[in-house]
Structure formats: C-alpha cells, structure tokens
Simulated assay, not measured.
Amino acid sequence: MTWTLPEPMLTSPVPDPGLRPGWAAEPKWDGFRALVSVDSGQVVLRSRRGTEMAPAFPEVVAGAAQLPDATALDGELVVWEEGRLAFERLQDRLQRRGAGAARAAAEWPAHFVAFDLLRLSGTDTTLWPYRRRRAALESLFAARRLSAPWALCPSTTDPDTVREWLTWAAVGMEGLVYKRLDSTYQPSVRGWRKYKVRETTEAIVGAVTGPVTAPRSLLLGRYNERGRLQYTGRTTALTQATSSTVAGLLAPARPGHPWTGWSFAAGWGTRETLDVTLVDPELVVEVGVDVARDAAGRWRHPARLHRPRTDLSPTDVPFLRPPP
C-alpha cells in the first residue's frame, strides 16, 4: 500500500498567549508551511495548499538524503537575511526553476524548520500523541546529526520560555503555536492554537475600497524620510457602523494626490488589483497589525481598524522604514 502525505493539521487563533497545563508551545515562523517526504529516493515538498515546491528549493531536495527512507516531516520553509526572516525572498524563490532556482538557493538558502513527525522509516506516526512524536523528532535530529537545510523547531512547556519567545518579533517571529501533549496529528483539523503578536500603531488613510460615503476597507500609508506618502497596507473589512463613522471624516482626493495612477494588489503575492477611490490623505487611524513585514516595512497581513485619531495629524504618524 502506497503511503501519501496527509493534509496538514491546522490552527485556530486565541487572544491570550498564556500556556495552559498539558500543552506545549512552539515559535510561529514567518515562512511557507510545508510538508516533505522521502520515499525510495523520491522527494515530495508540498505546500499547505498542495502546490509542489521541490523544483523551487533544490537545496531541500538534496538535503533529503540526510533523512531515513520512508520518512515525512511537517514544518516551515524560511529564509534568513541579515538576522531576520525574509518572507519576500521566499516569495521570489517560489517562482524560480532550474538554473534560476539553483542560483537563488546559493544566494538566499532556505531552511526547513521541522516541527512535527508524520512518518519515520516506514512507520506512520500521526496517531502517536504529540509528546511521543516530538521525542522521536528530537531523536531523529540527534541520531542522524541533521544539518542545513534542516532545523529543529524549539518546543517548550515552560511559561517563562514562552514569555521570552514573545519578544522575538523583531526578527520576524509571528507569535506562538500551542499543541496539546496528548493530541494525535489530525489532518485538516484545527486542533492546534495560535497566538499572533500584534502591535497598535497609526497610519494615514490614502484611499478606500467602495465609495467614499460607505468605505468597505481603508488603504493606509505612511510618509518615508523623503517626504513621500507610501502605501503600507490595508484594513480588514469595516463593519457598517465603523464605515459610517469613517465616511464622515473622509474627503475626496484633491488634484495632485501622491497615489494618482497607482494600482494596489488585492493581496500578498496576487496580481489581482483593487478598485480604489483616492481620498484626501489627512485622516489618521489607529490600527492593530502583526509583525509580518516585507523588505520595505509594509504590512503583509490586513490591519484591524481600532479607531479614527482625529486628535493626530499626518505629521504625527511614524515614518515608513524597512525592518531592522
């Protein structure tokens, strides 16, 4: 009987980073979720959505020779650049093949951060409890002396360590994932929990989707140090009540708006563009954002609108700067 990679186990968000008894925590990496298997020399590297990524990451395929045959791992593909996780490099690498992929692997090598064991030397481990899978994963790394591109994701049941990990946002860690110690690996089930580190900050409304009188979402900007208003991200969909409140504070764009002629992507990594209406960039809003940034410092995930800040002017908003 042929063994096939299962669908990945999923997470559901929680508002509190506290570690509960009977659970373990792991850092949440800003990368591509990936499952890898090696079987009779054949390597499969699959994304969460089922995309085959092996041609784009030849160093991971070559590194599979370190694994025992008939073994499969769940984890995250990441690229480090100048001391931080560089998601934009991963995004770029996904499009490359052949010689281009090999050059990118030399310039921006990826690591596979393994956080779960799905199969070991022909034994399906998905029905093992997490604590047993974790122990076997650690033994695999130690016994095989696995080295790059393989990295072992940390895991802890110590609350003090969890609190320390929450300070890692500066390097691109998104937060934490929690796994019950006695839980099996359940494909497609949201049995794990995740906590994302978020911060509250300000931005300037430069455009909206939908009409100015009833905006559906806000396009946000910040000035750079040269005095140019740059796009930094978009909010999630506004509620009807919030839309009405914000609409009363917006004014149509005057001639010479700094975003005239610009187009805006509907989401990270998509070519679909938004239908937007420019507004006078005078309204400041307070938003909640996570730590995922691109190389320019823009927010990769939608921001959550907290409230308009009519007490602030655009000059009070922090400059847009790339991550440290």
Rank of each mutant, 00 (worst) to 15 (best):
M9K: 00
L10P: 07
P13L: 12
L19A: 04
G22N: 06
W29S: 01
G31D: 11
A34V: 13
L35K: 03
V38F: 01
S40C: 12
V43Y: 01
R46D: 05
R49V: 05
M53W: 14
M53D: 04
A54V: 04
E59I: 03
V61G: 06
G63V: 14
A65R: 13
P68D: 14
D69L: 03
T71H: 04
L85W: 04
E88P: 10
L94V: 15
R103H: 10
A105C: 09
P109S: 07
A114T: 13
L120I: 11
S121P: 02
T123H: 14
T126L: 02
W128K: 08
Y130Q: 12
R131W: 11
A136S: 14
L137R: 10
A148H: 10
A148F: 10
W150E: 08
P154M: 10
D158F: 05
T161A: 13
V162H: 08
W165G: 12
G175P: 09
R180H: 14
S183D: 15
Y185M: 10
P187H: 02
V189W: 03
W192E: 05
T200K: 07
T200Q: 13
V205Y: 02
G206R: 03
T209A: 03
A214N: 09
L218H: 03
L238G: 05
T239C: 07
T242A: 15
A247M: 05
A253N: 11
A253T: 11
A265G: 15
G269L: 13
L274N: 12
D275C: 08
D275H: 13
V276Y: 06
P281D: 02
E282R: 14
L283A: 08
E286K: 02
V287L: 02
V287K: 00
V289E: 00
D290A: 00
D294L: 07
A296K: 11
L305T: 07
R309F: 07
D311P: 00
L312H: 07
P314I: 06
V317F: 01
V317C: 01
L320K: 03
